Simulated assay, not measured.
Amino acid sequence: MGYAIRRLLVFPVVMFGVSVFVFVAVRLVPGDAIIAMLGTESGLLTPDQRAALAAYFGLDQNWFVQFWRWFSHVLQGDFGTSTTYGKPVLEIILNSFPLTLELALLSMLIALAIGLPAGVFAATRKDKPADLILRIVAMIGQSTPGFVVGLLAIFVLSVGFGVLPEMGSFVPITEDPLRNLGQLILPALTLGTAFAAAVIRISRAAMLDILSEDYVRTARSKGLSDRKVIWRHALPNALIPVVTLSGVEFGYLLGGAVLIEQIFALPGLGRVVLDAIQQRDYALVQGSVLFVAFNFMVVNLLVDLAYSALDPRIRLDKG
């Protein structure tokens, strides 16, 4: 509990640092915010109209004034209004985040369901043909970009089977679970298989280290079956690096798998942020990045707490 409280006290400091970074970074993107908002119609503006728009959005002030005005509203729970959607930023984030969260959870489930058993299987058959094949598959999986896998999946389905994944109109899981799963299963497989390759390699290496420990040899000398030794005694300790990797990957997925959401036309958080950057929608970009950063810190905290659950020898309050 003491460790968790100390970590929570650091959250505001990190969030402030992220807010400063994203505020500066988004304004360093080349281009004019007014032109990005209005497109071709911006050429019809008179200088007075342009100045009025800049004053309305606060772009006529220096960066320090703009930052303080925005950050003081954030402290009150107001992330501003999106110039692209004309809605409160927090409302847009909360509407698009459930899709990204569902995609991230489904991808992680697929990755762990494939990668963990395969990694353990490879470790128990070290240097045998099965181990070599799995290592090659894992290397190919990690080397292939996710958007390539997604495009190939769409091509195979359309050319080989004459079907296309349903795209364009997302259906929430609360309305139609089966249709929702049909829309997300292919993107989740695209993301999950790529991460599964990393899980195979990490879990294999961790399991090989654990299997050489003295307590594993002691368990075997007592007559325990290999199945009990591997899954009951060795696997919990081998899960620690897998949990670490999963936490980092899950945090990135919560930020939105931008390319995958773009390929499959999913209105998730990553696609929203990409559109906001292209439209120079400062409030939406800044609010989305802060939201993602907060989720990332929460996931990392949960991962650290999971360490002590997996291995009681780890005392977080002493570190």
Results as ranks from 00 to 15, higher is better:
68 W>I: 15
68 W>Q: 14
69 R>H: 04
69 R>G: 08
69 R>Y: 03
69 R>A: 02
69 R>Q: 11
69 R>I: 06
71 F>D: 08
71 F>W: 11
72 S>C: 01
73 H>L: 13
73 H>N: 11
74 V>K: 06
74 V>A: 09
74 V>N: 00
75 L>D: 04
75 L>P: 08
75 L>Y: 01
76 Q>R: 06
76 Q>C: 02
76 Q>E: 11
76 Q>D: 06
76 Q>H: 12
76 Q>K: 08
77 G>M: 01
78 D>S: 06
79 F>V: 00
79 F>Y: 03
79 F>M: 06
79 F>H: 12
79 F>W: 10
80 G>V: 10
80 G>I: 04
80 G>H: 00
81 T>W: 12
81 T>R: 07
82 S>Q: 04
82 S>A: 07
83 T>W: 13
84 T>E: 02
84 T>D: 08
84 T>S: 07
85 Y>K: 08
85 Y>A: 05
85 Y>M: 11
85 Y>D: 10
86 G>D: 01
86 G>M: 02
86 G>Q: 00
86 G>W: 05
87 K>R: 14
87 K>I: 13
87 K>V: 14
88 P>I: 15
88 P>M: 15
88 P>Y: 14
88 P>D: 14
89 V>I: 06
89 V>R: 07
89 V>T: 10
89 V>C: 08
90 L>S: 03
90 L>A: 06
90 L>Y: 03
90 L>G: 00
91 E>A: 15
91 E>G: 03
91 E>F: 13
91 E>K: 15
91 E>Q: 15
92 I>R: 01
93 I>D: 04
93 I>P: 05
93 I>L: 02
94 L>K: 03
94 L>M: 13
94 L>H: 08
94 L>S: 09
95 N>Y: 05
95 N>W: 09
96 S>H: 09
96 S>D: 05
97 F>R: 12
97 F>W: 11
97 F>P: 08
98 P>A: 00
98 P>V: 07
99 L>E: 05
99 L>I: 11
99 L>S: 04
99 L>Y: 01
100 T>R: 10
100 T>W: 03
100 T>P: 00
100 T>Y: 02
